[in-house]
């Protein structure tokens, strides 16, 4: 599988990252098998978080067995120094490892949170100490919030080494600044910060729960994913062709093999085909009727 440099970290990540939340939906034996399956494809970058149910615990055994083959990303939603230290200790414990390769501020949404984490008493102060102590190697940030906020974070956090954010043909087709994650990608590239893409496989939102109760959703994802092999493959190709370092696999284990196949087969996507995909989802989504043309 193709690898790309993750910013300045010195690590070359495979173009697919395994989103280990998928393990949460499996029993331990199935989780072990899925990790072996992912490693068989050559994937070398895993991403997990304490918020993903039992995913840390279920990743643990195979992670420890294959520790040298896996570049491990983990995260914390804590914004304070104390909180971040507590969550880091807990994750190291639950994963059963001595170090985390990439520790990320998880799900930054508001400007006040950016103020909080960059404060003397903020989470990043804990990250830096942990780095000095050798408990983590690199510092990252994840957000599906406003692109402007991520740009601010890139400007304000000098030692940021990776950012994780949404990128797919739905958001690429929208011009408003609130969807301009391409600007984030460009800024991160300028700064030589690694880029990890999420929501590559999002097809749309789930219907309201009075129409489709949560228990009746056929997939465990936050969003309604595309599910056909062709669609998965073109979505992967699109995300990878934007120039992301790596595309994070979807959260439902039923989709993982298709994504791994797409990643293994990836050999670029020309621009006319990228536009074709943007145009298709734009029309699927469009409130304007009777368009004969593109």
């Amino acid at each position: 599988m193709e690898t790309r440099p993750l910013g300045d970290t010195g690590h070359d990540s495979t173009v697919a990252t395994f989103g280990a939340i998928a393990l949460n939906w499996l029993e331990q034996e199935g989780a072990n098998q899925l990790v072996e399956h992912v490693l068989d494809y050559g994937v070398n970058h895993f991403d997990v978080a304490p918020e993903y149910g039992d995913a840390e615990l279920k990743l643990g055994p195979k992670l420890r067995q294959h520790r040298e083959e896996i570049f491990l990303g983990c995260k914390t939603q804590e914004r304070t120094y104390e909180g971040a230290w507590r969550k880091l200790d807990r994750s190291l414990n639950r994963l059963g490892v001595d170090t985390i390769d990439l520790y990320q501020v998880h799900g930054l949404e508001y400007e006040e949170e950016l103020d909080a984490i960059t404060d003397d008493d903020g989470a990043l102060a804990a990250f830096r100490e942990a780095k000095e102590e050798g408990l983590i190697d690199h510092v990252g940030l994840t957000s599906h919030g406003d692109p402007g906020l991520i740009l601010d974070a890139l400007d304000r956090i000098d030692d940021l080494e990776s950012v994780m954010f949404p990128l797919n043909p739905v958001v690429a087709g929208k011009d408003d600044d609130e969807y301009d994650y391409e600007a984030v990608l460009a800024r991160a590239d300028e700064r030589n910060v690694g880029t990890l893409g999420i929501k590559a496989f999002a097809g749309g939102t789930w219907p309201p729960t009075d129409e489709l109760p949560e228990a009746d959703r056929p997939f465990a994802n936050w969003y309604r994913p595309v599910t056909a092999p062709d669609e998965i493959s073109e979505r992967f190709d699109f995300a990878a062709a934007q120039g992301l370092t790596s595309v994070v696999s979807a959260g439902d284990p039923k989709l993982v093999t298709m994504i791994l196949e797409a990643a293994a087969d990836y050999d670029g996507m020309d621009e006319a085909a990228q536009r074709s995909l943007i145009e298709r989802v734009r029309h699927d989504d469009s409130p304007v009727p009777e368009q004969l043309h593109h």
Binding site: R275, S276, P289, H294
Partner: peptide
């Protein structure tokens, strides 16, 4: 230049 290839004739088209 090529603008679209393939051309996505969607359900709405």
């Amino acid at each position: 230049r090529t603008l679209l290839e393939p051309v996505p004739w969607t359900e709405s088209h």
